[in-house]
Structures are given as structure tokens and as C-alpha cells.
Design a protein around this nucleic acid. Sequence first.
RNA 1: GCCGGUGUGCUGGAAUCGGCAGACAGGGCGGACUCAAAAUCCGUUGCCAGCGAUGGCGUGUGGGUUCAAGUCCCACCACCGGUACCA
Length: 802
Amino acid sequence: MRHYNFTEIEKKWQGIWDKEGTFEVKERPGVDKDYILIEFPYPSAQGLHVGHPRSYTALDIVARKRRREGKNVLFPIGFDSFGLPTENYAIKTKTHPKVVTEENIRHFTRQLKSIGFSFDWSRAVTTSDPEYYKWTQWIFLQLFKKGLAYKKKMDINFCPSCKVGLANEEVVGGECERCGAPVVRREKEQWMLGITKYAQRLIDDLDELDFIERVKIQQVNWIGRSQGANIYFPIQDTDEKLEVFTTRPDTIYGATYMVIAPEHPLIDRSRDRLENYEAISEYRHHAKHKSDFERTQLVKDKTGVRLEGIMAFNPISEEEIPIYISDYVMMEYGSGAIMAVPAHDQRDFEFAKAFGERILQTVSGDPVDEKAYTGDGKVINSPLIDGLSVDEAIKKMVQIIVERGLGEEKIQYKLRDWIFSRQRYWGEPIPVVHCEKCGVVPLPEEELPLILPDVESYETTEDGSSPLAAITDWVNTTCPSCGGSAKRETDTMPQWAGSSWYFLRYLDPHNDKALASDEAINYWMPVDWYNGGMEHTTLHLLYSRFWYKFLYDIGVVPTPEPYAKRTSHGFILGENGEKMSKSRGNVINPDEVVRNYGADTLRIYEMFIGDFEKTVSWSMNGVAGAKRFLERVWNLQSMMASESKNYSKDLELIIHQSIEKVGKDYEHLKGNTAIAQLMSLTNAYYQKGSITRGELEVLLLLLNPVAPHMSEEIFENLGNREQISQTKWPSFDREKTLEDQVELPVQINGKVRFRMVFPRGMDKSLVENELKESSDYKSYTEGKTLVKIIVVPDKLISVVVK
RNA sequence: GCCGGUGUGCUGGAAUCGGCAGACAGGGCGGACUCAAAAUCCGUUGCCAGCGAUGGCGUGUGGGUUCAAGUCCCACCACCGGUACCA
């Protein structure tokens, strides 16, 4: 027998799978489909991280197993290739992002293929390919037509030194990540997508889905639904009203002042009447230059300015109350104004203390001298609702407010609309033009894709616009509507755009008539199982559910939800327990592991490393252990002493148990315990010293999804014509997974004192009788009073004595 | 702060429903093979006491429920992730 030459074996089988198209699939009406999806990688210049193969292997195992169970399995791969890191890398190395991307994809493809995943490579998609982004642009146009894509003026992070708009993650401690200059907020017209219109459905439809609980919880909390009321507070001596949202209308008598966000439009509207406009503008100016970071550092120190010269009117207590601006009130949430109830809201309390405002308790409970009282109690100091509980008072007050025309019931979400434009080059151009006469005009669908033009430089222009703005002959165009002169939109889409629908393109990747054919969509959707990182829970996962629901509404897809099931994997850290990074010098390159130990070893180790959902540290010793296991399996070939297809009596139990456990564990992404079981089975074979062909083959059949190259090779060495990938997944006999005799521990007063052997399934009373006869029992209970005996069938016996 | 999660030998980690804690690995120690080493194979390995049989202790801490708790309940501590004054 030759030694285990993994390099040769792996190259051979990868060649066979490639040549034979082993894992390529078509729709097969009438055959059960299974769509298994992993998050496609971002092809970074660093290449594959050892974290990628962890989740890819786990789902590859499921795919390989389910194919052998007769399912028509789609397990695709692609590349999420637009995005900021590539653009920045391109700027640094002065290479076109397209070239960088192509190189990276080649690199990733080679790496992924070297690990032997059973992807259907014929369906690979690349989001930066015009054939692909044609349909990303098409979806945008549909959103635009339905009013879900709109323009809005808003503040962005801007680096005055680099003259570039920055993503939140590029702002570190209030400074620009690249040059260290302080970041400012700058107003910019941005494209927005109306995801908030879908907020309620995005919560409600989670009920039906098989998502791991913490994903559901995080999405629900992120969307952040709260129920309350909008109430209008008149401004004295004007027709103006200040709208506030509150979840606690019961406390309205305690609303002793109001606060509006620094950006609130009331300020400009009331300019003439404000006696301290200068102080107010200064505060506004200051707030504008504060980064998000600074705002969050000053949680305790409430700042603000009172609007001198105008007063609001509390429509229920009928008192005149002052108005302040303060940056603890956010323009993006609710109406950008609050009624402040210092007695029952901690932030309002802190502000009232700082500005000497009146604190009126309206719910009985702890006194409100030191802090706000937020608990339950009876309503006090509130003539219309005194004596009610908080819940009753909320209902009653809402009723009063509605009856008197002072406001309405309101449901408010934390979720904000999706800021969809980027002043960047490496993204999908937004397919609209700006016409002086017609306004914003969408491109006709026949003109898609709107190709991203080449530019000289990828740097943002002077005023912070996208590099596209500098290409005047591209920007200047004609209006599709009136034929007059018009300018193209120069913003591009965010990286999230392409990844919001890629799973649909896999179904029919070369279709130029539609994003995918109806036949393909109807056959394959929804995705049966989607695995990805927890970090994508509130952005990518939510965004793609939103797009899919939209496509459902316009009749493109047949189901309201894209993913039937969602699971999530943990990170892999370096050997020292820290995040892998070049600067820490703890990066493990999967290529080296494949070269030195083989792909099968890498796959085994990635699965054996620990609980799939948890964060784990890499260990080179662990890799060596995985290799040792595979060597032991390889060497079993010389231990095969019989051509019999049968299992010997003494191995029957562990073999049937292994078939049961390994299959179940693979399905639950518990590769670690599945492999532990296969190790135990291998150890049992070594104990025995010689095995039959049937025994060796069943191990290979079970091992195949994790170590496909080696298992196929040995299977072929045994003279089999067919490949394991064409065999049926083995079945087990339930009766044979159970032992005939069971050893029961006997606890006396909670401590295991001795053990007794009984036939499996023996009647409780017979067990009890036999127990009482035993000498061990007698010696432990002598001179004591028996209280009770508990027999848990085939598990244990518990005796209580006094 | 809030939300979510985690805490088990020297290390990574096992332990369907509340039923023998430590499976399976790594590392250590001992042995076989070898001139020797590596590799391989076999044995051993939670901690404390004891030559031993054995006994005691033991799943972050403190309490509780139970015949029985890593698992359930209450209070707390530490760490990790998400989020940022959400009215």
C-alpha cells in the first residue's frame, strides 16, 4: 500500500469533479430540491481567511450528504466584488479596481477549488460584472417607480483634508482613518430606500421562519417597534404646532418643557421671534461638527440652549412650557422633538437638573429627587386620569387626545431608511439622469446596463462628489424623457446592493431577459438553508429580506421570504486568542495548511475545532491531530482481512450507532462530535486488529462529506467502480443501536455507590426487587430506613434512605 | 447603560428531556519497536489524601428547587459580540 500522498490524491479528485461536472445541477421537476447557500466572499487582496472554510465546509457536508439522500442540491458560489476596500487598494497601488478584482477572484477561485467544495462552479456570479449589475440596476428602477427610492438631504461624514465622504467604519475616534484629520458632518443629497415601509412585515414574517433565535431577536430589536401617540403642542401666539412622539402619554401632565433636535426646522421658521438666535445658531453649528463619536461620549453631560421668545403650550395640563434645543434629541427618530417628562425619564431628568426645570411626579413610586422613576404605579397629579394604573392611563389618555383632536395613535420604529448612495467609484452606477425640465428621470430599461466608465483617478472630487463627476462627457447626456440636455447621477450604489439578491441570479446566471427565469425561480426558491455571520444580521440579512419582499410585491418571486432557515457560525481567532491580522503576525494562510497537511486535513480540523456557533482559536497542534486521524484511516486499508460486506457481531453496535449519530450531527452542523464518533469507530477497528470490507467501506461512506478526496481514493483502491458521491447515504437499524445489557449506576442519597447490570427494558419492579437482593444494596442501607427508590429505566437507580 | 451570548481538567472541547461530568482530541508521563531518533502502536492522565482498596472535592461566585442540577429559578462577577441618549 502506498503512503498517503494527499497532494496527488486531492489534485486527482478535484480534476475528476471539474471534468465530470459532478456537482453541476439543473432543475428536475418532480425531484425534491434543496437550495443550500453560504454567504459569498468579498474577494479581498489578502485572499481566503481560514474562517471562510469553516462555514463552507459545514454546509458542503450537508450538501454532499443530501445529494446522496436523493435531493437535487444547488450549492452555488460567487463573488461580492464591488466595494470600498478594493477601491482603496486600487488607489494605493494605482491599479484599476477591475484589474484588482479580476486578480483577487482568480486567487480566491484557485484557493476555494483547492479545498474541494462541491460548488456548482458553472453558476458562479460576480456582482461587478455588467451582466450581473444590469439587474441590480433594474431592481433599483423598479424601487424608484414604486416611490421606494427617493432623494433626501442629509449629513454625511466628510474628511475636509482628503475631500472624501467617509463610511462610519472609516471614522476612528472622530478622525479620518487615513489622514487623521477631524471629520465633519456635511450636508449632501443622498439616495434613500424606503425599508421602513416594510418594518412591520419584516418583524411579522419572522414568525414563520426557521432562523436561530438570536438572529430573530436581533432583527426585531433592530427594527425597534414601539407603540405610542403623536401629540401636537401649540406654540404660543402662532398657528404653529410642535409634533412629538411618546410611548408614555400617561405622563403628559409631567411634561414641564420640550426639547427639539438641533436640526429641527422650527428654529428657522421662528427666527424672527427668537431673542437669542445667535446662541442657538452657535449651538447648532457646534452640534453639526460633533461626530457621532463625540455625541456618545457625553452621555451624562446634557447640553442645550433655551429658545428665548417662544413658549409651547401643554394641551392637557394647559400650562405654558419652555422649549430647548439639545443634541440628545435625534432628528431621525420620531418627529425630532420630545415632550420632556423629567420625573419619569432619566435623560429628561438629567437635563432638567442641569437647566433647573420643574420636575413633577405623575406616577406614584420611588421619589424623584435623585433619579427618574420609570416603574409602574398609580397615576397622580393628573386630574383626567388620576388613580389609574400606567397601562390604563395610557389607553385613556390616547382616547382623550384623539377625541380632542390633539393627536393620534402612532407606531414608531427605530429602523431608518437605507442610505443608498455612495460618492465612490467602485459600485453600480445609479441609472437615472437629472434633467432641468423633467427632474429625476430613470433610464429606460433597454439602456441597462449603464456601464461604469473608466476614470483617470478614483479619488473623490473637490466638492466630495464621486470620481464619476469628473468625466464630463459621461455626465453630460440627454434626457430620455424630453431629449433636452441632462446630467447623469454620479453617485454609485453601496456594496449591499449586489448582495441583496445574488441568490436569485445563481438560479439562472446568464439570462439576459430577466434576473432569472420564472421556471428556475419557481423551482428553487426559497433558499432552504442560508448560513452566514452574525455580523450580517441587521444589515445584509435584513436588506435582502426587504428587496425580496419588494420583488414579491411586484410579482417577480413567488414567496414572501427568501430564506427558510438561517444559521450562523463563530469566528476563528489566531493561536493567541486574538483576531488574526498582519500586524499581530498571527494570520494562518489556508494555502499553507493545504500544502503541508492537505485539504481533507484542513476540512477535518475546521470541523473538529469546536462548537460551530462559537468563537474559537486556531491551533496548529489540532491540525496535526486531524492529520493523524486521517493517516489512521488510510492505514486501515492494510488491516482489511476479509472481503465480506457484513459487519462482525462485536462491531455491529458501534457501526449502527455511528451511522445514526454522524448523520444527525452533520445535519445540525455538529461536525466536531460527528468526527469524534468517526474517531471512536476507527479506534474500535484498531482495537480489533482486522476488519472486513463492509466495515471499512461504511467508515468511508460516513467520512466522505468531510474528507471527500481521501475517502473516494480508498473506495476506488478497494476496486469499486462507482464513486462515493454516487452511492446512497447509509442507513441504520434502530434495534442494532441499542445494547442488550445496560449497566445502571445506583445512587444512595445522591451519590453513585455501585453499579448493576440489567437486561435492557427490564420492568421497574423487577429491577427494584433484584436491587434489594444485592449485597451492595444491603451493606449501604443496613440500619437505615428506606424512604424511596426511583428507577429511571435504562438510565439509573436512585435510593433515598434515612 | 441597553440587547444578545459565553464561563466545564494543563489546553480545544463533549454531555437530546434535569439522570454516571470530562466523550473525542491536543499536551504530559510510561512502555513496545529502533543502534538511536522521528514516525507508528499500546497504556496512563480532573484535583486532593492514601502503597492500596477507597474516601473527599469538583462545571465563574453565592443562594434556592429536586431523590438527582453544567443543565431549572433568584442574586452577583468576569469576558465576548451588537448598539448608542430611540422619547
